[in-house]
Computed example of a mutant assay.
Amino acid sequence: MRAVVQRVTDADVTVDGQITGAIKQGFVILLGVEDTDDMQDVRYMVDKVSGLRVFEDQEGKMNLSLTDIGGSILAVSQFTLLGDARKGKRPSFIKAARPEQAKELYDQFVSQIKEKGIYIGEGIFQADMLVRINNNGPVTILLDSKKLF
Rank of each mutant, 00 (worst) to 15 (best):
S65H: 12
L66Q: 09
T67F: 00
T67E: 15
T67N: 08
D68K: 06
I69E: 06
I69D: 06
I69M: 06
I69C: 11
G70A: 07
G71Y: 09
S72E: 15
I73M: 13
A75R: 03
V76N: 05
V76A: 10
S77G: 10
Q78D: 11
Q78E: 14
Q78A: 09
F79V: 01
T80S: 14
T80L: 10
L81C: 12
L81T: 09
L81W: 05
L81D: 08
L82Y: 11
G83Q: 04
G83H: 04
D84S: 10
D84Q: 06
D84V: 06
D84R: 10
A85W: 00
R86V: 05
G88R: 03
K89M: 08
K89S: 12
K89L: 10
P91C: 08
P91I: 05
S92E: 09
S92D: 15
S92H: 04
F93Y: 15
F93R: 12
K95W: 04
A96N: 01
A96C: 03
A96I: 01
A96R: 02
A97H: 02
A97M: 05
R98Q: 13
R98P: 01
R98S: 10
P99K: 08
E100W: 04
Q101P: 00
Q101E: 10
Q101D: 12
Q101L: 13
A102F: 00
A102Y: 02
A102N: 07
A102E: 01
K103L: 13
Y106P: 01
D107H: 10
D107S: 14
Q108A: 15
Q112G: 03
I113Q: 03
K114Y: 04
K114S: 13
E115H: 04
E115C: 00
E115D: 15
K116S: 10
G117N: 11
I118Q: 07
I118G: 06
I118T: 08
Y119V: 11
Y119M: 10
G121L: 08
G121D: 06
G121P: 05
G121H: 07
E122S: 14
G123T: 07
G123W: 03
I124V: 15
F125I: 03
F125H: 04
Q126K: 15
A127G: 10
A127I: 09
A127K: 13
D128C: 05
M129S: 13
M129P: 12
M129W: 08
M129A: 09
V131A: 12
V131W: 03
R132Y: 12
I133Q: 04
N134I: 12
N135W: 01
N136F: 14
N136R: 11
N136G: 00
G137E: 03
G137M: 06
V139C: 11
V139A: 09
V139Y: 01
V139I: 15
T140E: 00
I141A: 10
L142H: 13
L142E: 14
D144I: 01
D144N: 14
D144C: 10
D144Y: 04
